[in-house]
Amino acid sequence: MKPKSKHIFLVFLTILIFFPFIFLVLLSMAPEWRFPNILPQYFGPDNWQTILRSETGLLHSFLISLLISLSVGIVSTLFGFLISRSLYYHPQRKWLNLFTYFPYILAPVVFGACLSFFFLKMGIFGNITGVIIAQFLIAFPYALIFFSSFWNKKIKSYEDLVATLGGNQWQKYSRVLFPLAKSMLLICFFQTFLISWFEYGLTSIIGVGKVQTLTIKVFLFIKEANYYYGAISSCLLIFPPVLLLYINKKYVFKNRV
């Protein structure tokens, strides 16, 4: 391919990738853009101001989603890291590793239905705590599988070395293991955050409509054929992942060079 046509092809490809996102932003700022109008009658931030109004509850959903996903991301990453270490040193680790795949055998909706009985008994059905725990049960095994590749003989040697140099458990983690796993911790947090952020099936069953995350809200607006609010909520939905992607690119991949 000639350099000029390659350049044109790349520009075309970039436009193709970014067009849906740009269109979403345009749609969210054009509340009365109907066929056959080529341009919208009004173009401005009116729709976005409705986020602050309580009637749509978008801001509330955004904050709830943020709270749930941050909790799931942080707890899954931290516990996944610590428990995966115990798994690595366990004599039956092959069997235990196999169990970590269990939540993925079932579809999230089926998994949610199985959990709902226990959640109902524990009184965490239809509240944020229940949704966080349910999503944790999906994200945590992912973190376990993710970190299983981190532990090896060399890491064990580092741990032993820190011990003979006089380091206690806390110093071992804070001065050696966490810094060594920094990139993996960031990526795992990013992934588990995304698992939680876009989770729909399990959240809709455990949340029973009372916990309206942003993903649930997007589906609601689309069901109502409210494209403009759907566009706003979609914009809000992709904002945190884009931010995390930027952070990942800036810190994780930079460190790997």
């Binding site: 060399k154 040697s157 580092y158 032993d160 070395l161 011990a163 003979t164 140099l165 006089g166 380091g167 206690n168």
Partner: peptide, 15 residues
């Protein structure tokens, strides 16, 4: 425990 012995173990690898 290893951390209380003041005995350092060095591997073939520099680590």
């Amino acid at each position: 425990k290893a951390e209380k012995r003041n005995t350092i173990y060095l591997y073939q690898e520099d680590l």
